[in-house]
Lab assay of single mutants.
Amino acid sequence: NQASVVANQLIPINTALTLVMMRAEVVTPMGIPAVDIPRLVSMQVNRAVPLGTTLMPDMVKGYA
């Protein structure tokens, strides 16, 4: 099973992602693959992402 990107903290809307905000976890359903974490750094979320939420492609501006 491939790990997905999960929020390590509450990420407010329009926040630029940093490594500290994300962790890799095997979850269902799968979200953004953990291998993409370096690519996500400095991209912004388009909604508030609660702690423990799996990041989906439509939550990150410019990802999809």
Results as ranks from 00 to 15, higher is better:
Asn1Arg: 02
Asn1Phe: 15
Ala3Tyr: 05
Ala3Asp: 15
Ala3Asn: 12
Ser4Thr: 09
Ser4His: 01
Ser4Arg: 02
Ser4Tyr: 03
Val5Leu: 04
Val5Glu: 01
Val6Ser: 05
Ala7Val: 12
Asn8Thr: 15
Asn8Lys: 10
Leu10Trp: 07
Ile11Ser: 00
Ile11Tyr: 01
Ile11Gln: 00
Ile11Val: 12
Pro12Met: 05
Pro12Lys: 09
Ile13Glu: 15
Ile13His: 11
Asn14Ser: 07
Asn14Ala: 07
Ala16Val: 10
Leu17Lys: 00
Leu17Ile: 08
Leu17Tyr: 01
Thr18Arg: 06
Thr18Ile: 05
Leu19Val: 14
Val20Trp: 09
Met21Leu: 07
Met22Gly: 01
Met22Thr: 02
Arg23Tyr: 04
Ala24Met: 05
Ala24Val: 11
Ala24Asp: 15
Glu25Asn: 05
Glu25Gly: 04
Glu25Pro: 00
Glu25Leu: 03
Val26Cys: 15
Thr28Ile: 04
Pro29Ile: 10
Pro29Trp: 07
Met30Glu: 15
Met30Cys: 15
Met30Arg: 03
Met30Asn: 13
Gly31Phe: 02
Ile32Ala: 03
Ile32Gly: 00
Ile32Cys: 04
Pro33Phe: 03
Pro33Asn: 14
Ala34Asp: 15
Ala34Gln: 11
Ala34Val: 06
Val35Arg: 03
Asp36Phe: 04
Ile37Glu: 03
Ile37Pro: 00
Ile37Gly: 04
Pro38Thr: 11
Arg39Val: 11
Arg39Asn: 06
Leu40Ser: 00
Leu40Glu: 01
Leu40Val: 08
Val41Asn: 06
Val41Phe: 06
Ser42Trp: 07
Ser42Gly: 12
Met43His: 07
Gln44Ala: 08
Gln44Val: 11
Gln44Thr: 14
Val45Tyr: 00
Asn46Ser: 14
Arg47Trp: 06
Ala48Gly: 10
Ala48Asp: 15
Pro50Arg: 09
Pro50Thr: 13
Leu51Asp: 11
Leu51Cys: 15
Gly52Pro: 00
Thr53Cys: 04
Thr54His: 03
Thr54Tyr: 02
Thr54Lys: 04
Leu55Tyr: 01
Met56Asn: 09
Asp58Trp: 04
Asp58Pro: 08
Met59Trp: 14
Met59Tyr: 13
Met59Val: 08
Met59Phe: 12
Val60Glu: 02
Val60Ile: 14
Lys61Leu: 15
Gly62His: 13
Gly62Cys: 09
Tyr63Ser: 03
